[in-house]
Amino acid sequence: MKTQLKYLIPFVIFLMLIGFFLKGLNLDPREVPSPLINKPAPMFEQPLLNDASKTFSSNSMLGQVWLLNVWASWCTACRDEHPLLMAMSQQIDVPIVGIDYKDTNPEALDVLSKLGNPYSAVATDVEGRVGIDYGVYGVPETYLIDKEGVIRYKQIGPITVAALQEKIIPMIKGLK
């Protein structure tokens, strides 16, 4: 009997592999979870998009729940996300701060004037340094930050309606 079972080893290993693959089919290998979740959001102070002589400081948001959306005029996925952001700015009662990532001001302003501006403020990050601090690797990316300035959630890629309804809105309610 013992010798018989020995020959089943390859089959058993194979079954385990199949199990992993089945699970793996529903995972996205490209998505990199942020290690910054539940960590304090990195502080930044950057020039404003519409007035480069003034700056926006992330410290000014302490005490409120807010969304940080990293976007750029050259990013096509951001364009897809834009209508949803517009709707969110109307319907969700939290400020959305934009970071214009590795972009030029005229082009970014042009996009906002054509498609509407969902942001309560837009800071620029021409050199992508804020992006590195936040671990941005593909725009758009959106961070939900709580009253203590702790990152609670990160959306990689465009916000989807599902993510908004199932994750972001309930979390905002919980945090408020």
Partner: peptide, 14 residues
Amino acid sequence: VIGGALILFAIRAP
């Protein structure tokens, strides 16, 4: 295909 082959193997091998 592979599962079938490995079961066949386990039956015949001894």
